[in-house]
Design a binder for these strands. Sequence first.
DNA 1: TCTGGGGTCCTAGGACCC
DNA 2: TCTGGGGTCCTAGGACCC
Length: 408
Amino acid sequence: MDAFFVSVEELFDPSLKGKAVVVGGKPDERGVVSAASYEARKFGVHSALPLRTAYKLCPHAIFVEGHPERYRDYSGRVYEILRRFSPLVEMASVDEAYLDMSGTERLHGPTLRAAHTLHEMMKAETQLNCSIGIATSRLVAKIASDQAKPNGILHVLPGVESRFLAPLEVRRIPGVGKVMEKNLHEVGIRLIGDLAILEEKTLEARFGKWGLALAGKAQGLDSGGWFDSEIGERGDPKSISHEHTFGVDTKDCGQLEATLAHLSEKVARRLREHHLFARTMHLKLRYSDFTTITRAHTFSSPTQLDIDLIEHTRKLLNDNWDPRRTIRLLGVNTSSFEHDQGQLDLMDGGRTERWRKALEAADALRDRFGESAVALGSGMRGRYKERVQDNPAALPGKEPAKPKKTGQ
DNA sequence: TCTGGGGTCCTAGGACCC
DNA sequence: TCTGGGGTCCTAGGACCC
């Protein structure tokens, strides 16, 4: 999708159309640009740019807050349209998808014709522009769709993949970022064509496994890394996390612990939504000077409970935080998922089951009354530990639910 | 420039096991 | 006395993507 977030915002506020628009937050806030309109891009504004910098480059731009729910909604509509063209659709992100068009000619005609139909249907039904790349590999199709932007279609015919890629900068290969680009430049490789004439062995010797994958990519193949799989629905997520950057750096213990509790609750809730149990969790901690550490804990039996995350996240913080330094960001991550708890802990005594029921009720309340309807006391204050540890079952049921403060 | 938030994948070292 | 080889799991960090 072209300038997806901006385009969706324009649907909700047509007065934004044709103007310099920056999605991501207020111009004096901490944060980066999520998306910029083509008008704003003329001034050098692009995604990932700090908002304050964007403001300096383009002070007359309209800065709007992002609306993830809107993007998810429109992403779903896009998916429904794509599904009419192939049963094999993979959403690579909220605004990007791959279709396997093999064997669809009888139904939709030649692929280029199908692409035109899709392009028009997308516009008619969502009022959004997209760009389409057609090729024999995911890699080339993606690069082709980048080349086709804005609002275009590009078909790279079978057999001309290398010729299409050769004149492009190596940076255009997905997976080649700032660092890899610099490494390649240092050995005189600037274009994909330069890469293509190198021996596989040379690249492997210099860049290891990645070098080998790169050699294939230079030929237009889906070798190694992200592309090396069939197009199809994504399976379970590999990790679930939430993090928060403070508006102002802090070393206030209460604020830190309340934030961790809140992040833990959000993560745990999503684990339950996905019916997943996490075996490991990580605390992420970023100091004011941007140095970042992560510290892990592995559970003896995997969990999806708020309290388990809160308890260990807090322990990891206390064990690893240097209290002389102020903190910029905290994050809670979970991974190594399993579909059940495995062996039930003999010492559990029904604790897990009671919590599961309580949290299920809390989730239902959040569904009805919004995210802030229910929270553990720890999300608001720093004093929960004693009561929870002494009598875990008592808390959610017997404590009256208090309205949760918004923000931090 | 003063650097979000949600992810994926890879590397490398150490503990531990047979 | 001067220390193999293979495997798995765990931890920490980093590049990269949208």
